[in-house]
Simulated scan of single mutants.
Amino acid sequence: MHVRDFYLLSASLGISFFANIMLRFVMSMWVLGVTGSAAAFTFVFTASILPAIFGL
């Protein structure tokens, strides 16, 4: 693999990782906005982050 291809692959993986993190946070904020419940926000945010932490 050429160096340029490696840089493009690395950049796309980084962008994808960042987008996944933002999606989890924004989805949790949407739940907070719709329900007004901090408990629901915490549950959704925790449920979306745990698989990433434990590799599930």
Rank of each mutant, 00 (worst) to 15 (best):
F43A: 03
A47S: 12
H2P: 04
V34R: 14
A11F: 12
G36R: 05
F43Y: 03
F18L: 15
L56I: 09
A39W: 07
V26A: 13
L8D: 02
V34Y: 13
A39D: 14
T35P: 10
A11T: 10
A40K: 01
F45T: 00
I53Q: 07
D5K: 11
L32I: 01
T35H: 14
W30L: 10
S48E: 04
L8F: 01
L9V: 07
L23Y: 08
L8T: 04
M29A: 06
S48G: 07
A40P: 01
A47N: 09
S28W: 01
F17G: 07
L32D: 01
S28T: 03
L56G: 08
M1K: 01
M27F: 01
D5T: 08
L32C: 02
F45G: 00
L8M: 03
L9M: 11
G55R: 14
S10D: 09
T46H: 10
F45M: 06
F54E: 10
A39R: 07
M1A: 01
L32V: 02
S12M: 09
A11E: 07
L50Y: 12
A52H: 09
I21R: 11
A47V: 10
L56K: 08
L9H: 06
P51D: 08
M29Q: 06
T35G: 15
A11V: 13
F18R: 06
L23M: 13
T42Y: 00
M29D: 05
T46I: 13
T46L: 15
F18N: 04
W30Y: 10
L56Q: 09
I15W: 06
M22Q: 11
F41G: 00
I53S: 10
R24Y: 05
F54L: 13
A19M: 06
F54V: 08
S12G: 07
M27P: 01
D5Q: 14
L9N: 08
F45Q: 03
L8H: 04
A40H: 02
A11W: 09
S12Y: 05
G36I: 10
V3N: 05
L13F: 15
W30H: 04
G33N: 15
S28M: 03
V44M: 11
N20V: 13
L8P: 01
I21Q: 12
L50W: 12
D5H: 08
A38K: 02
S37T: 08
I21A: 14
H2C: 07
F6H: 03
V31I: 06
F25H: 06
N20D: 09
L8I: 04
A52R: 10
G36L: 13
G33M: 12
V34E: 14
D5R: 07
W30E: 06
F43M: 03
T35L: 15
N20C: 10
V31N: 00
M22E: 10
Y7C: 01
T42S: 03
M27G: 00
L23D: 06
P51T: 07
M27Q: 01
V31T: 00
L13G: 15
I15M: 14
F43D: 00
A40D: 03
A39S: 12
F45R: 00
G14L: 15
L23K: 13
F18M: 14
F6S: 02
F17L: 14
V3I: 14
G55N: 12
M22I: 15
G55Q: 09
P51K: 11
